[in-house]
């Protein structure tokens, strides 16, 4: 197994997930299996192949650029329509503490 429980906890913390001890034990082999599969794919020689993270096509420029023209979109009311707790025109969230 390439992964440890520590890795599982680290990844969960990055994703702001709280896992119980049982869940850590349950996810460890699953996550490990995913990585194992990736390693299998890595055996393929792709050094001559362009990555496809984004679709690449032959074009002189980037044809999908937008002109710099502002448009009216949502009103403040509409923007806040889904907010669990709006206030003073803002989205209210639990206080963010940045410093010790």
């Amino acid at each position: 197994m390439a992964l440890s429980e520590k890795d599982v906890r680290y990844v969960a913390a990055l994703a702001h997930l709280e896992l119980t001890e049982e869940e850590v034990k349950k996810f460890l082999p699953q996550l490990d299996a995913v990585l194992e599969h990736m390693q299998k794919l890595n055996q393929l020689d792709t050094s001559q192949v362009e990555p496809m993270a984004q679709v690449i096509y032959p074009a002189a420029g980037t044809p999908t650029l937008r002109p710099d023209e502002p448009r009216q979109t949502l009103s403040q009311q509409e923007s806040l329509a889904n907010a669990p707790e709006p206030g003073a025109g803002c989205f209210k969230v639990p206080r963010v503490i940045e410093r010790e």
Binding site: P70, T73, Q76, A88, G89
Partner: peptide, 14 residues
């Protein structure tokens, strides 16, 4: 296409 104007009422350029 939202405006970048500074100082508008909050969340009105979204």
């Amino acid at each position: 296409s939202c405006s970048t104007r500074f100082g508008d009422p909050p969340n009105s350029n979204t």
